[in-house]
C-alpha cells in the first residue's frame, strides 16, 4: 500500500539506498495528511457553493455555522502534524546528521565540487588519507594534499566518476572550491550543499548495483545545468577493490581541467 502509493500516486522514482526508505515513508505520510485535508475541504467547498448559492438561499444567516467540528478538525491537524514532526521527522534528521557510520565500517570519500564538475578522493589500499592543508589548496591541488606525506602516496583521486561498493555505508566529506554547489543523488534520496570553506559529512548506503547520475542542485553559474558529468557507480565489493587498485597513486597533485 505505502510503496504502491509512493511510486504510483505521488510518483517517487526508484529507490536505491537503504537510508532512503525512511525518507520516502515520511513523504508518503505527509501526503496522506495533505490529501485527506484537501479532499475534505473540497467536498465541503463544493457543497456550500451549491447549498448556499443566493439562488437557493435568499436570506443569509447572521449567525452562520455554530458547528464544533471545525475546531476538532483543526486540533486533529495539529495532533497529526505533531506526530509527524516529533515521531518521525525529528528523529530521522537526528539520525541523518548526528549518527554517521564509523570510517572503519564505511567507504570514505572526500568530494570537492568545482565549476562545473566533481572531484573525489579515496584513501588508497592502506585506508589512510595523506595529510591535507587548507593553505596548500590550489587550482592544481583542490584537496590541498601534502605531497610530502607518505600516507598519501597510494591515495586515489578521480574526476566525475565515483565508484562505491554496494551494501556498505558511504561516508562523504563534501566541500567546494569556488561557489556553492549541491550534491544530489535522486535514487539515494541524498542532497547536501557543497559550501566553500566548510567540510560537511553526509552518508548513504547503496543497495542496487548500477550507474547513477550526480545532480548539482544549487545554482552555481552559467554551467549549472551542464554540471551533469558526474556519476556514482555502485559495484560489487570485488569490482570496487579492483577498480581502487587500478587507480592507486593517482592522487599526486595534478590538474583536472
Amino acid at each position: 500500500m505505502k510503496d504502491w502509493f509512493a511510486h504510483n500516486v505521488i510518483g517517487l522514482p526508484e529507490l536505491a539506498s537503504s537510508n532512503g526508505q525512511a525518507v520516502d515513508d515520511l513523504i508518503v505520510y505527509v501526503h496522506w495528511l495533505m490529501l485527506a485535508l484537501f479532499i475534505g475541504w473540497i467536498l465541503y467547498f463544493g457543497y456550500v457553493l451549491f447549498r448556499f448559492n443566493n439562488a437557493r438561499n435568499k436570506k443569509a444567516d447572521y449567525q452562520g455555522s455554530k458547528s464544533k467540528v471545525p475546531s476538532y478538525v483543526e486540533l486533529a491537524i495539529v495532533a497529526i502534524e505533531a506526530v509527524l514532526l516529533l515521531g518521525i521527522a525529528v528523529p530521522l534528521w537526528a539520525k541523518n546528521v548526528s549518527h554517521f557510520p564509523t570510517p572503519e565500517e564505511s567507504t570514505v570519500v572526500q568530494i570537492v565540487a568545482q565549476q562545473f564538475a566533481w572531484n573525489a578522493r579515496y584513501p588508497g589500499p592502506d585506508g589512510k588519507f595523506g595529510s591535507q592543508e587548507m593553505k596548500l589548496v590550489a587550482e592544481t591541488n583542490v584537496f590541498g594534499v601534502d605531497a610530502a606525506d607518505a600516507a598519501g602516496k597510494d591515495d586515489v583521486q578521480v574526476f566525475n566518476e565515483i565508484h562505491v561498493p554496494v551494501n556498505k555505508p558511504v561516508l562523504i566529506y563534501l566541500s567546494s572550491k569556488d561557489v556553492i554547489h549541491s550534491l544530489k543523488l535522486v535514487a539515494m534520496r541524498l542532497t547536501q550543499d557543497a559550501i566553500p570553506g566548510l567540510r560537511i559529512p553526509c552518508t548513504f548506503t547503496p543497495t542496487k548495483i548500477g550507474r547513477y547520475q550526480i545532480e548539482c542542485a544549487q545554482l552555481c553559474g552559467n554551467g549549472h545545468a551542464a554540471m551533469a558529468g558526474g556519476f556514482v557507480v555502485v559495484q560489487s565489493q570485488e569490482d570496487f577493490t579492483a577498480w581502487l587498485k587500478s587507480k592507486s597513486g593517482s592522487a599526486a597533485p595534478q590538474s583536472f581541467e
Binding site: 475541504w41 465541503y44 467547498f45 456550500v48 457553493l49 448556499f52 448559492n53 443566493n54 438561499n57 435568499k58 436570506k59 443569509a60 444567516d61 449567525q63 452562520g64 455555522s65 458547528s67 471545525p70 478538525v73 483543526e74
Partner: peptide, 12 residues
C-alpha cells in the same frame, strides 16, 4: 478555516 466557514449559511 474561517474563510471556508464564513461561506456556511451565507447567501452567496
Amino acid at each position: 478555516t474561517c474563510m471556508f466557514l464564513s461561506l456556511w449559511g451565507g447567501s452567496i
